[in-house]
Design a binder for these strands. Sequence first.
DNA 1: GTTGACAGGTTGTTATGACATGCTAATGTC
DNA 2: GACATTAGCATGTCATAACAACCTGTCAAC
Lengths: 254, 254
Amino acid sequence: MTTDTRERQAIRRSSNVPAYNQLAEILEQQIAALTDEERTRALPSEGDLSRQYGLSRITVRQALKTLEAKGLVYSAQGRGSFPTMPRVKGISGFHSFTSEVRRNGQEPSTRILATTEVDGLPKSVTEKLSVTEDENSPQVHLRRLRLIDGVPIAVEDAWLPKALFPDLAPADFNDGSLYALLADRWGLEPAWTDALIEPDRASPEVSKLLNIETDDPVLVAWRVTVTAEDKVFERVRSIYRPGFSLRVARYRLG
Amino acid sequence: MTTDTRERQAIRRSSNVPAYNQLAEILEQQIAALTDEERTRALPSEGDLSRQYGLSRITVRQALKTLEAKGLVYSAQGRGSFPTMPRVKGISGFHSFTSEVRRNGQEPSTRILATTEVDGLPKSVTEKLSVTEDENSPQVHLRRLRLIDGVPIAVEDAWLPKALFPDLAPADFNDGSLYALLADRWGLEPAWTDALIEPDRASPEVSKLLNIETDDPVLVAWRVTVTAEDKVFERVRSIYRPGFSLRVARYRLG
DNA sequence: GTTGACAGGTTGTTATGACATGCTAATGTC
DNA sequence: GACATTAGCATGTCATAACAACCTGTCAAC
């Protein structure tokens, strides 16, 4: 008496989530659970998936394209579609700090150092991140200390445009992931980031916060994050302590 | 007497280049020439493009999807498709050094410091870039000094797997872009990169090469580059001089 | 003047179908 | 046994079609 313990997940046609996104999510979960050995084998063919889930081939291809854009699979004509190999581990400075660190099995924490409202961006920011649009528009400025397992990792200055987040109050920053809050309340999510990364020496102020020596080598990242519709989500300057590695995974070339 | 000076480029149906790639290239050129002002206006609608170029809407959408994956445009339901704004300038450490610097209007040069063949990767590399596959396979090791306008910018150690590039000889490294050579001779192109970036102090050896002081803060990038079919193309460790900014443009989140 | 309904245009989703192109393994021939 | 051929299967490209969802400007009603 053998029963297939893998209950095949079905596509809910009545859902407002598109079928190809549902399929992409199912496949993403399955792929994430694969071992290195299993990753060398092809995924089910487009025809198989089409039959199994009752979708047209165009919808199946759309799901695979989604995963390909994320760098999770690749397709080879005549052979099939295959999972890709993960190449680096570590914490990315670009995604949500909270969830990234947690996924890594470590405990993130954040200490808010200051929250103010300002009428424009500092010159240092506009110089690094060629700002043309909302240079002089009101911003919420947020200074945070990021810690992993209690160890200070980075000093972060973030500027969020008030135009995009009406009624954003300093009190909102107190707990949890800022990204999660912004997604909940304004339905906005970061989709792309542009960054400049450079080496520097720790200033006396920063070295005290990070508990390192003045003039220790630090990594400075300037970045601007935009939504899928290319609206500026936030601008951030992060200063990372020595010994910390910034992960840039699955960066598309060409 | 008004003549339309813009000769509309046509799609060559006999070409072996897919129609959607031809259209994507045409649009990419047109977008690159736009001013910030013009970027706020929508592109021609999918229906317009379909009629103008004699393509089905599915093919037009495929072209737009290509540009969207590159971060050059975005689409908004009910409104249209729009170009995105470029946010950062500078030189990326991830693409071809030669062409990146040239596009920036500066003069790149490279001095080869050493080329050897080795039987495996150094432990420092395998530690940083969780290598599972070809750890002990033969590699060509290449040590280069990168210069911009005659100023030394970075010391680069690259390891290329011999399995992927049969007959790769040290003499091949002498001139021009390495990437161009690899594309010409083996038809292989880098598609993705995974990287770790960390701050460090310049060693005596590196400081001499970069013409800086020992213990100056430098930026160290470890990266592995793979082809579209997820085959390891090269592994590189780059050490950048102080004052140099590494650009990470259009990095996809989520 | 403000509001609301609506028309028209735009992208989003999904289906079916056809043929091209490339890879692999089985088959057949020598 | 070695090698060429081929059938079958995989993804790639492109077309037509229909409807859903969404946005904007117009115009009428209040």
